[in-house]
Design a protein around this nucleic acid. Structure first.
Lengths: 227, 227
DNA sequence: TTTGCCAAAATTGGATCCAACTAAAGCATA
DNA sequence: TATGCTTTAGTTGGATCCAATTTTGGCAAA
């Protein structure tokens, strides 16, 4: 694994505390490399938003608030919505449609038996990634993909970071059922060239990881707390 | 000026041809520095999207098509639309409202005499930057700002890169009049907390630099060429 | 003349070295 | 004892050095 990837992982795991300064030599020792690749990695991670300049010299680990996480999700939503709308307007190739349908079929298969296993979770994660990557890839221009990928490096902003709570597979199952319907709606809208509809669907779909938990709870009564 | 900034400028000026490989040593000599700062800059510019990896080793200058430019503009549109909607929903502070109104007043002053001078162009450019920066800054979270700033490094994606054609100041004047009305609409919508409206206005406003030229021409009859 | 292989040059990635700047610790003086 | 200055340790940015890989050029053979 590259130095950038390892450092990204360390940061997301909290090895280097958020808001604190991060020293080149320390990281170099931790990763067993010299300062050069670390310095290069710092610049990459700065642009990704995981690090920020600490005055004139050096960097510090970026601290993210809950508001930032929500913001990152909304950014993903509008960008993926844009990509989906463009795809609907330019028309869906049969190859793309088949790939998307394959994702839908596999999603159906995963959810068919009425409950979730740990294995199902990883399987869903993979098909979900494929689904979103297919839409982004079919859009043509690399520009939107780049913007989304940069945003995805922020914690919880990625489409993959959907399931965390393996304790409550019941709630997660209901969430994935909703996600499956959303995926189906998106493919339907794409196939009919309904650009405006697919954009709104995609934007709503972005909230699945953060706003649907409290909706789908059963044991604790679903409560909508006003802010 | 920093190495990154100078290199960014050189690339946008076409010193290093698009699509071609860019060599560290060459750039280092051109800028009169050693390879180290150049290598650091390459990583930054890679994330900004101006460079891309050339296989396993090295980078090449990214080539942008017209479709890419349009895409970058649309990305700016949805992101700035998101920012404006959030601002409308969270409410506009009086300080922010005053700053925006100051921009509107100055815009009015620039356009009052009925035609444009070269000085007016720079003055508009500045107030336009202030206008957009004010909205982004008031949104709170840094995440959207980051996403927009990264996108802005792409050619023509920035809100500043509005006016190029100083030969036809007549057309540009009409364009700025439209932009001024759009700015006014945006402030109005923000002030009334009209989130959905301001989002759409902002998204349309993003097209001012690319789609309004052919609309506002007078001497050559306005023609809408189907693609 | 063309094709394939080998060698040499160039280029990149990583490590080390040096200078400048920052921060901290200790000492001296009021 | 507290405050301020000086010295010293640490950290970062830039330059140079080294090794490995890629590319280019030339030579030989078919």
């Amino acid at each position: 694994m590259s130095v950038v990837a390892r450092l990204r992982k360390s940061i997301s795991e909290g090895v280097y505390p958020a808001g604190e300064r991060i020293a080149e030599l320390q990281v170099a020792n931790d990763l067993g490399v010299s300062r050069t690749p670390v310095r290069l990695a710092f610049r990459t991670l700065e642009q990704e938003g995981l690090l920020e300049r600490a005055g004139k010299r050096g960097f510090r680990v970026r601290a993210f608030t809950d508001a930032d996480v929500l913001c990152a999700l909304e950014v993903r939503g509008v960008l993926e919505g844009l990509a989906a709308r463009r795809l609907a307007e330019q028309g869906l190739s049969t190859a793309t449609k088949e790939r998307l349908n394959a994702c839908l079929d596999e999603g159906h298969a995963v959810l068919a038996k009425g409950h979730l296993t740990a294995e199902d979770v990883t399987r869903w994660s993979e098909l979900n990634s494929r689904f979103h990557a297919t839409i982004l890839g079919a859009t043509g221009s690399q520009v939107i993909q780049d913007a989304i990928q940069r945003n995805d490096h922020l914690p919880f902003a990625s489409a993959d970071s959907l399931i965390i709570d393996t304790e409550r597979l019941g709630r997660e199952y209901r969430k994935l059922c909703v996600a499956q319907v959303q995926h189906q709606s998106i493919v339907q809208a794409l196939a009919h060239g309904e650009g405006a509809r697919v954009e709104l669907l995609m934007r709503e779909h972005a909230y699945i990881g953060i706003r649907y938990d409290e909706l789908l709870e059963l044991d604790p009564k679903p409560e909508v707390t006003p802010e």
